[in-house]
Write a protein that binds this DNA or RNA. Structure first.
Length: 423
RNA sequence: GGAAGGGUGGCCGAGUGGACGAAGGCGCGGCGCUGGAAACGCCGUGUACGGGUUUCCCCGUACCGAGGGUUCGAAUCCCUCCCCUUCCGCCA
């Protein structure tokens, strides 16, 4: 949520920065200002009426104690009360509208974010590694996986429909090995390993920004009013919601391995083959809860921590800085890490590292008490460290051999217990 | 799923319809005492929003798990929900 105070104080600035995402957004700010003006005027009226009511109520108590008649004053208070009620109703309406509106406005992009329309305008920041030179026609991961008996698309669909895959044998072990490798790496860097709930309440998703705007992307358990998490970012970031942290407790680094559930509404026909886009995939997530002064420095380090996984696995990648038009809802700045996929002859997103500044903290009401004793919102960051399904695809493709077997990246051999995956 | 008890400030804890933002204690901060410290004494110590003045100062409103209700007036009474503890049942 953007700071209403900022909108009120510098509406022009807010409009300009939001327009870099989408020209349409500036209009919403005018609506916010109108509602806010009405809200404040109602509030002033109501509060002075209440002050009067409180004064008179006390008077009644006094009169009664003295054994005097108080019916006249009571009548007056009743009148004030009905006066309050009318305005109160309108106030609640206005506040509801204002909140819904505010919850649907995305975060302001940071000044440093390149201005652009879509992913075409993203900025490549750096590359690491060389795409492999095979000397034969590389196969896509779904063919490699099927031939090795580790990816079973037919049976996945039989159980649950399209975009669900059964992973078996060395594939299942690969997943487990990657999970351990990643968690071990991040733990060593000071991230606290967490095993969070995978089902969360609606307000938790509102805290990180998935609700109310992206309801259709989520799986919901209707009877219990719970949603399946689309990423571990959701429970991890919300861990300290409603709390006032001590300044010394910051920064907080968290990591978790969880499955992620996404309905992928609106991505029909995209990445329909293979395991690039699934309704269920695993991911190791990184979350940081930090002091506002250091959040951009923390973003650089978070991104490097995610990159480290790809370096360790020897997978070629590049880092791109998302342009304003491609930025996610809650993010002020995002680096995507894209891994090389030989079958597609291009880099594909495998991690997304964002600084949300105080956008989520405001929604979650997570604050800290600074050295002057003032309560301030924390900054929150998150990044994949990294998506395991896509890592498996990348390993199968980048480490494939002409005979259909797959070499295991050296760093993973002890975790997996083999040097090569073959039939 | 059933039964009982409970949720009050940073913490503990009192408060069952009227001067209660809330006793008391702890903690924290300041001052005093002291060569210094402990102990002791005195004073202070929540948050959010709105308004004034643009100051961290004043005024007002709200907040005693959350939301509704009763009442001239609710921490206190009623309803719904959430959470915690204990016991029983069930279960991995």
């Amino acid at each position: 949520m953007i700071d209403l105070g900022l909108i009120r104080k510098s509406p022009q600035l807010v409009k300009e920065r939001l327009s870099k995402r989408d020209k349409e957004l500036a209009r919403l700010i005018d609506q916010v200002l109108d509602l806010d003006r009405e809200r404040r005027s109602l509030l002033t009226d109501i509060e002075s009426l209440r002050a009067e009511r409180n004064r008179k109520s006390k008077e009644i108590g006094l009169l009664r104690k003295q054994g005097k008649d108080s019916t006249a004053v009571e009548e007056e208070v009743r009148r004030i009360k009905s006066d309050i009620e009318g305005r109160q109703q309108r106030l609640e309406e206005v506040q509801r509208e204002l909140k819904t509106l505010l919850l649907r406005i995305p975060n302001l992009p940071h000044e440093s974010v390149p201005v652009g329309e879509d992913e075409e305008d993203n900025l490549e920041v750096r590359r690491w590694g060389e795409p492999p030179d095979f000397g034969f026609e590389p196969k896509p991961h779904w063919e490699i996986g099927q031939r090795l008996g580790i990816l079973d698309f037919e049976r996945g669909a039989r159980l649950s429909g399209s975009r669900f895959t059964v992973v078996k044998g060395w594939g299942a072990k690969l997943e487990r090995a990657l999970m351990n490798l990643m968690l071990d790496m991040h733990s060593k860097k000071g991230y606290v390993e967490v095993l969070p709930p995978h089902l969360v309440r609606p307000e938790i998703l509102e805290g990180t920004g998935q609700l109310p705007k992206f309801e259709e992307d989520l799986y919901k358990c209707e009877r219990d009013e719970l949603y399946l998490i689309p990423t571990a970012e959701v429970p991890l970031t919300n861990l300290f919601r409603g709390e006032i942290l001590k300044e010394e407790e910051l920064p907080i680094y968290l990591t978790a391995y969880t499955p992620c559930y996404r309905r992928e509404a609106g991505s029909h026909g995209k990445d329909i083959r293979g395991i690039i886009r699934q309704h269920q995939f695993s991911k190791v997530e990184l979350v940081k809860i930090v002091h506002p002064d250091s959040s951009y420095e923390e973003l650089e380090r978070l991104t490097l921590d995610a990159e480290e996984v790809l370096k360790t696995l020897g997978l070629p990648y590049r880092v791109v800085e998302l342009c304003t038009g491609d930025l996610g809802f809650s993010a002020a700045k995002t680096y995507d890490i894209e891994v090389w996929l030989p079958s597609q002859n291009r880099y594909r997103e495998i991690s997304s590292c964002s600084n949300c500044e105080d956008f989520q903290a405001r929604r979650m009401n997570t604050r800290f008490r600074d050295s002057k004793g003032k309560n301030r919102f924390v900054h929150t960051l998150n990044g994949s460290g990294i998506a395991i399904g896509r890592t498996i695809a990348a390993i199968l493709e980048n480490y494939q051999r002409e005979d259909g077997s797959v070499e295991v990246p050296p760093a993973l051999r002890d975790y997996l217990g083999t040097d090569v995956i073959r039939l």
